[in-house]
């Protein structure tokens, strides 16, 4: 404001950034070093042998764990299914609740609202029992379906839809737009920013799941990358730290890329949606 450099701010923010960037740099640098050296505690900040290790973990993984390309594939499938599934069913149900009057509408609304209070971690054992009843243990459907129901997304879309002026709806109807065309031509474009923000939040949410996959998918072909990493460090025999760290880097890349690339929508959607 007055042309002088605000050194305090730069120093505080610099330390803050270092607090987050340095550990990740260290992980990257460890991934390129010799496993035995890391094991002896001779970890260095300077990257070592090169990036061959990435090719190695991608194609062969680590003992007892599927190759990392497969882990990434499962994680990607899971994150995408959850994000797209949640957005789709939430848009539809919010549309029904905001623009129609049908029997038991309020009951439906409150039932959906109720789920806000039950994160997976709270209902693990009983949900597991229900899944076992459906025969969904160790299936991709079982991995994703229970995480798709979402009150937050429905409430967010309902809020957006309620803010659309009645005149707009009236005009659309005068032009002969039926409910489906109204949804496609007006509601979806209007909520594009919300959808983008939710996509980021839900993609990250799906990618980072740990407890649910741990319970429902014991088959190693359904291991996500997060599960794979924890398995690698849980090995009783000596841990190959360079492999673990290379996998950790690969596990962080996709969700971080999504957040950074879509930062603008993500921040707006997060803070304006009050979730």
């Amino acid at each position: 404001m007055n042309g002088r450099t605000d050194w305090t701010a730069h120093i505080v923010l610099g330390i803050g950034v270092a607090l987050f960037v340095l550990p990740v740099w260290l992980v990257f640098s460890a991934s390129t070093q010799d496993a035995a050296m890391i094991g002896r505690g001779e970890l260095s900040f300077i990257p070592g042998a090169g990036l061959d290790i990435y090719w190695k973990v991608l194609s062969e993984g680590a003992p007892g764990v599927a190759p990392v390309w497969h882990l990434l594939l499962v994680s990607f499938g899971m994150a995408m299914s959850i994000a797209i599934g949640k957005i789709t069913i939430s848009v539809l149900s919010a549309y029904a609740i905001a623009f129609f009057r049908f029997p038991f509408r309020l009951l439906c609304f409150w039932m959906i609202f109720f789920t806000l209070m039950l994160p997976v971690e709270v209902r693990i054992i009983p949900t597991y029992a229900v899944m076992a009843g459906f025969g969904l243990i160790n299936t991709f459907t079982g991995l994703t379906m229970p995480l798709i129901a979402s009150a937050t997304a429905t409430l967010l879309f309902r809020q957006t839809f309620l803010a659309i002026p009645d005149e707009l709806v009236e005009a659309a109807r005068m032009d002969g737009a039926g409910p489906l065309r109204f949804l496609r031509d007006i509601l979806l474009p209007v909520s594009a920013a919300n959808i983008a923000a939710l996509f980021v939040i839900l993609f990250v949410y799906g990618w980072n799941q740990y407890l649910w996959p741990l319970l429902v998918a014991t088959d190693s072909r359904l291991d996500t990358i997060v599960i794979g990493i924890v398995k690698m460090i849980g090995a009783d025999t000596s841990v190959e730290w360079n492999r673990v760290m290379a996998t950790a880097v690969l596990a962080m890349l996709p969700p971080v890329a999504v957040v950074v690339l879509m930062q603008h929508w993500f921040v707006k959607g997060l803070t304006e949606g009050d979730k």
Binding site: S90, F99, F102, M111, F114, P126, A129, V130, V169
Partner: peptide, 30 residues
């Protein structure tokens, strides 16, 4: 809202997926 669409089959079909997931994976386990 003041203006709404008529009919109940379409909205029922729209809430159904969300509702089924809610019942099977939230309300029943709870």
């Amino acid at each position: 809202r003041r203006t709404i669409f008529g009919g109940w089959a379409l909205p029922a079909a729209f809430v159904l997926p969300q509702l089924l997931l809610t019942i099977f994976f939230f309300i029943w386990p709870a």
